[in-house]
Structures are given as C-alpha cells and as structure tokens.
C-alpha cells in the first residue's frame, strides 16, 4: 500500500516536472527573441540611434517563418535537415535546463553542456555542407570557436564537479551553487560568464557571421523559414547559457517553495537574465571584432585560467 502511495507521489512529481519543463521551453521560444530585441534597442541607444521596437526580432522571425524555405541548391543533403535538428536540440536543451520554473529533470552539467554544444554542431555541419565559400569560412570559424570555448567550458564544469563531488544541477536544494569564498569557484564563475558571452556571439567573438567582412557567414546558404529556425535556435542557445549561469550562481533555496516561491523564482530569473543580457549587449557595442586567431588566443588564455580552477578545486580550494 505504502509503495503504491510512494509510486503515486513519484508519478505526480514527474508530471509536474515535465509540465514545468514544457512551460520553460515554450516561454523560451518567445523570451529569447524578445531579449534579442532588447539587445538591438540597447545597441541603437548607445550609438545614438532610435532603434527598432523591442518586438522587432519577433516580427522578423514571424515574417521569415511565413516565407517558404530557401537553401543553397548545390548543398549536401544534410544541409536541408540541419535547421530542424538544430531547433529540436535547442528546444530539448530548453526542456532540461531549469529556467523560469524549477523543472527538476535531474539534468547534470554534462548533459546540459553537450546539448548546448550540439546546437552549434548541427548548424556547423549544415554550413560546411554548402557550396558557398562564405558559408564554409563561417562554418570553420564556428567550429574553431566551439573548440576553444569548450576548453574553457570543460574546465569550469570539471572544477565545479571536483569541488562539490557531483555534476547534478539542483533546482531546490543547493547541491551545486558556486561558493564565492573558494578561489576555484570564483574563477569558474568568471569562466562561465565569459563562455555565455562568447556563445552569445557578442563582439569581439562574433567571428562566424562577421557580416562586414564575410557578407554573411555560416547562415548565408539559408533563407526564409530555414533561416528563421537557425536564428531562433541560436537565440535560445544564447539565453540558455545565461540561464545556466544564473542557475549555478543564485541561491534559489532562499526563495522558499510553494506558489509564492514559484512567482519569486520567475521574477528573479527574468530580472537576472535580462540584466546579464543587457550588460553583454553593452559590452558588445563597445568592442571591435577579433580576427579568428585573436579570438581563439583569448579563449586559450581563459582556458588556462579554467585549468588552474580545476587544479585548485581538486586540492579542495
């Protein structure tokens, strides 16, 4: 009898988890382009322009989704499938990485990292399957940046795991919450913030599209709804990197549980992610673009810092 009750509670918990996860993913579909709109507005204001409405990115995406898909006619077969796979992986990442609601899917840092990186991988396979030189150059740059940023990301994850003995991202109890008094965790938090910045393709690291110099990069072979899918999934990925940073840095347990806790969580999460995004966009506006070599070299230095964090964490600092 008691087993039946326990099973019932577990099933109820699982239903809640997946409903929360679904809500998170659906909200992200709108929230990510909204953040992009805010970013465009900030950039315009800093450049003393009026700028578009903050809903402009949503309008742009809607327009692109309504158009038929366009693709380079000489591309390989996979290129046609890439936008759908990229979007599916982005939505999957949105389902399992806790964001607005505390969806405790049991996600660990490795699964989260791999899904987020898989979004870039699916896109890069597509862009390198094109016959357009700009697309291939953009794809190469995207892949090079992915390797260099993974050096830093892996270091941050390994140091967190070594410090806390687990990879599990908790949503309620503080199983992994970066400790501001440990030197390794200070470095790890800084590295994670840099990774979120780099993966958001902010200047000076925005080298794969690099429109002024490449006339469009990794996405140039796509148009219409295929382009919409790829742009949309990139925005979701960028937002999820920030969400991961917030998940690990904020002490969620102080917000309490129950309906009030939920409302507080939504508010705190929204404020924090929007704030971080705005700061990133401001930095993006003031920087110039790195050459690919400069970008990779900069990330190599961050990677060395993350190695130091792993060493410190493994000796208990």
């Amino acid at each position: 009898m008691s087993t039946g009750v326990t099973d019932g509670v577990a099933v109820e918990q699982m239903i809640y988890t997946w409903v929360f996860a679904l809500v998170n993913a659906l909200v992200l579909l709108v929230y990510a382009p909204l953040l992009d709109g805010i970013g465009r507005k900030i950039r315009a204001r800093i450049q003393r322009r009026r700028g578009p409405s903050i809903l402009q990115t949503i309008y742009d995406l809607r327009k692109l989704y309504c158009m038929p898909g366009i693709i380079d006619g000489y591309s390989g077969r996979y290129a046609r499938y890439a936008p759908a796979l990229t979007m599916a992986l982005a939505i999957m990442a949105g389902l399992i990485i806790p964001s607005f609601l505390p969806a405790d899917t049991g996600c660990d840092l490795i699964v989260a990292a791999y899904l987020l990186v898989a979004v870039s991988i699916a896109l890069t396979y597509g862009s390198l399957s094109m016959s357009i030189p700009y697309s291939v150059v953009g794809g190469c740059r995207e892949a090079s940046l992915m390797m260099a940023s993974e050096l830093c990301f892996a270091g941050a994850i390994a140091s967190i795991a070594a410090a806390y003995g687990t990879l599990y991202i908790a949503v309620a109890s503080p199983i992994i919450r970066l400790d501001p008094f440990k030197p390794s965790m200070i470095i790890a938090a800084a590295v994670l913030a840099i990774i979120a910045y780099v993966e958001g393709l902010n200047l000076p690291f925005e080298i794969s599209e690099a429109e002024p110099e490449l006339a469009g990069g990794a996405l140039i072979g796509y148009g219409g709804r295929t382009l919409a899918l790829l742009m949309h999934s990139s925005m979701i990925k960028e937002t999820l990197f920030i969400a991961l940073l917030v998940d690990l840095l904020f002490p969620w347990s102080i917000l309490g549980t129950g309906p009030v806790g939920l409302v507080l969580r939504i508010a705190v999460f929204t404020v924090l992610t929007t704030f971080i995004y705005m700061v990133m966009r401001m930095l993006d506006t003031v920087y110039g673009r790195y050459t690919p070599r400069q970008a990779i070299r900069a990330l190599k230095r961050v990677g060395l810092a993350s190695i130091i964090a792993v060493i410190l964490a493994s000796i208990g600092w």
Binding site: A84, M87, M130, S131, T226
Partner: peptide, 20 residues
C-alpha cells in the same frame, strides 16, 4: 521533434536556389 519540424516547415516547402 526534428522530424515534425522538418515535415511541417521544410519538406516540400523549401526550394534550392543558386547561391553567391
């Protein structure tokens, strides 16, 4: 999900064009 997205948004509704 990727199959669904492909079926609804891409398959039959995407045309190949000459690139630059």
């Amino acid at each position: 999900l990727s199959g669904l997205l492909y079926g609804i948004l891409i398959s039959g509704r995407t045309r190949g064009v000459k690139g630059w």
